[in-house]
Simulated scan of single mutants.
Amino acid sequence: MTPASSAGAVLIRKYKVRIGAGLAVVVLVLGAVLYFALNSAASADVGDCVRSNGTKGLRQAACGSPEAQYKVVGVVRDKSQAESNFTTCREFKGTSDVYWEKGFQSFVLCLAAAPK
């Protein structure tokens, strides 16, 4: 093997490592985004349980787990913050709390105490 071809092989290996590392970072970032998107209040549906995430809103939690604070008894889409009140959730029996979030689509979660 000539010195030029040996140097070329080393360079190709370096590029492969860089490309592999870059792809690994992209996959990790996309995985994290997907995980948080699927466990957020925006993806909660009737029957799901949620917990407070401090000042960051609500996150989904397994029903029956000690983390679960509320059970979603109703979801109302396209409501403003001013409309996020008990009147919006009056048709959902057991509503004890109301949660509003603005995102791609604003929504109201009608919440009841989570079963223990």
Rank of each mutant, 00 (worst) to 15 (best):
R18W: 14
Y35C: 02
A32I: 00
N53I: 01
A44R: 06
A37P: 05
G22W: 06
A42G: 07
G47I: 11
S43E: 03
A42F: 11
K14A: 15
A37H: 02
N39V: 09
V29H: 06
R13D: 11
A41E: 15
V27P: 08
Y15F: 15
L23E: 12
A21I: 12
G22A: 10
L34K: 00
S43W: 01
V33S: 02
V26I: 04
C49L: 06
D48G: 06
D45Y: 03
A41R: 09
S52L: 06
R51L: 13
A21M: 13
R51K: 15
S52P: 06
Y15V: 15
Y35I: 01
V17H: 13
A24C: 12
R13I: 15
L28H: 00
G22F: 07
D45L: 03
L30T: 02
D45Q: 05
C49W: 08
Y15K: 11
R13T: 15
V26N: 04
V26Q: 04
G54S: 09
L23I: 12
L28S: 01
R13M: 14
L34V: 03
A32E: 02
R51Q: 15
N53L: 05
S40W: 01
G47D: 07
L28Y: 02
V26S: 05
V33I: 03
K14S: 14
V27L: 13
N39C: 12
Y35W: 09
F36S: 03
L38V: 03
N39A: 10
L38I: 04
V27R: 07
V25I: 03
R18H: 14
S43P: 00
V27G: 06
S52E: 06
G20R: 08
V27I: 15
A32G: 03
A37I: 02
V29C: 10
V50P: 05
V33R: 00
C49N: 08
R13H: 11
C49G: 08
V25Y: 00
G47K: 10
L30I: 01
G31P: 03
V26G: 02
D45A: 07
S43A: 02
A42V: 05
G54A: 05
A37T: 02
G47W: 13
K14Y: 14
G31K: 03
Y35T: 00
A21P: 09
N39T: 14
Y15N: 11
Y15R: 13
L38S: 06
V26A: 08
Y15T: 14
A42K: 06
G22I: 09
K14L: 14
K16E: 05
R18P: 08
A41N: 14
G47E: 07
G20C: 13
I19W: 09
A37K: 00
G31Y: 02
G22N: 07
G54C: 05
Y15Q: 13
F36D: 08
V25P: 00
K14W: 13
